[in-house]
Every structure is written in C-alpha cells, then in structure tokens.
Amino acid sequence: MSTIPYTMVFVLLVFEMLIFGLLVIPLPRHWRSALVNFISTSPLIARGIHLLKILFVFVLLLFIDAVNRLQKHQAAPVESGNMYGHDPRLDSSLAAKKFYTQRNMYLTGFTLFLSLILERTFNLVLTSVQQQDEIARLKSHNTSTSTDHDRRMSDIVETHKEELRKLKKEIERKEVDLETLKKQCQQQSEEYFRLADRHNELERQGLPTEKRKDK
C-alpha cells in the first residue's frame, strides 16, 4: 500500500487544524472581520475551496478503502489459522497490516470529520462577524442621528428661549403700562372726587342766596 496518498491526507489534516485554530483563536474584531471577509469574497480562496472539495472526495474513497481493508484483516487471522495453524510471523505481519489500516481509517475519517466541523465553524464565525459589523454600523448611525437630533433640539430650545425672552420683555412692558394706567386712573379718580367735593361745597354756599332772591 502506497503511503503517499495518506501522507497527503496527513498534510491536509494539519492544514485543516491550522485553519480551525486561526478561526477560533481570539483576535481583534477588525482583524477577524478582515480575515473572514477576505476568505468569503476572494476568488482565489473560492478556487482553493473547490480544489479541497475534490480532494475530500478522494479522502472519502481512501476512507472507504481503509474500512474494507480493516474488515478483511479482521477476518484474515481466522482463515489463516484454519489453513496454516498458528504462525507467529504471520500473526505479526497481519497485526502490522491491521494497525496501519486502522491508522489510515482514523486518519481519513478524522480528516473528513474535521472538514465538516471547519465548514460549520467558518459559517458561524462569518455570521457572527456580519452581525457585529451590522451592530457597529447601527451604533454609528444611531450616534450620528443622536448628534443631529441633539443639535436640532438645541436649536429649538434656543429659539424657545429667545421667544420667552421676548415675551418676558413684552409682559414687563405691559406691566409698566398697566401701572401707569393705574396711576392715571387713581389721579383722575382723586381729581374727580376733589371736583365733586368742590362742586358740592359751592352748591351749599350758593343755595341760601338763591332762596333769598326767589322771595
């Protein structure tokens, strides 16, 4: 059995582990966002992923072959024991072949399993990054909107303050006019009562004379 395909599978497994570690390692949000966006939008990465999918098909074939070989090796000791009796060298050779077959099965199986985990992890990280970018965009928009709203409210408050100052001045002017009017009314009232008293006094003084003239 050639070891070159399984060496390539091992290299692919190490590559998957590196990518998985790069995805789950704590990174600043801007770095992670740039990395994930580059992976999801780069045409070169897209071609690489397409090539990896083809390689995973071959890995799947190697996994199926390893499972079949393992089943044959598990049945081989029984058949060889029935045919040739107990042979230590044959048992050692069969055990070595079984060990390598199990190793190849675990290697290819874990590579396929990690590929599924890697794809799912990347989708989760991509969704998380997109949501974080959307939250950051909404926060920035809300901040700018809040700033504009505060500016408009400040202008409205200043306008109302100016109107209140004008109204206050108008009220003060009206109060002054009212006080002046009250003083004028009081003076006119005092003058009226003074003239009325004077008139009554003159009438009392002139009444006897008029009566004597009538007689």
Rank of each mutant, 00 (worst) to 15 (best):
E172T: 03
A76V: 10
C185H: 14
L60G: 13
V157P: 03
K161G: 04
H141Q: 14
K166Q: 06
K183I: 06
L178W: 11
P77C: 06
Q130P: 04
I135T: 08
A75I: 08
V125H: 10
L52Q: 03
F113Q: 11
H141N: 15
D150L: 05
R103V: 15
R152G: 06
R152T: 06
L114D: 07
Q130N: 09
N123E: 15
K72T: 14
R165A: 03
D91L: 08
I45P: 02
K174G: 03
H50E: 08
Q71Y: 13
D91K: 08
L90W: 03
S140W: 13
R165I: 02
S128C: 09
L164I: 01
Q132A: 04
L124Y: 11
T147Q: 03
Y106V: 12
I64G: 01
G48P: 00
F99S: 13
T143D: 04
I171M: 02
L90Q: 07
R137Q: 06
L52S: 09
S154D: 02
S80G: 08
V59W: 07
A75G: 10
Y100G: 11
Q131R: 08
Y100L: 15
Y100K: 14
G48Q: 00
H50R: 09
H141T: 13
R69K: 07
V125M: 11
S144P: 00
R103F: 13
D150P: 01
N104E: 13
P88M: 04
R152N: 08
T159L: 06
T101G: 13
T108R: 02
Q186F: 03
K166F: 01
V67Q: 08
R120A: 14
Q186A: 05
T108F: 04
H73E: 11
D150I: 02
E179R: 10
H50Q: 06
R103T: 12
L181Q: 11
E119V: 15
L107K: 03
A76E: 15
F58V: 13
T180G: 09
Q132D: 00
N82D: 15
L118G: 01
H86N: 13
H149A: 07
D177M: 11
I156F: 06
L181A: 10
Q186C: 04
L116N: 12
A76D: 11
Q188N: 08
L167K: 00
K72Q: 15
K53Q: 11
G81A: 10
K169N: 00
L138K: 13
R120L: 14
V176Y: 08
F110T: 12
L62S: 00
K182Y: 10
V157Y: 09
C185I: 12
E158H: 02
D155A: 04
A96E: 15
F56I: 15
I64D: 01
K169L: 00
L118P: 05
Q102F: 14
H141F: 14
S80P: 08
Q188W: 03
A76P: 12
I171S: 03
I156Q: 05
E179V: 11
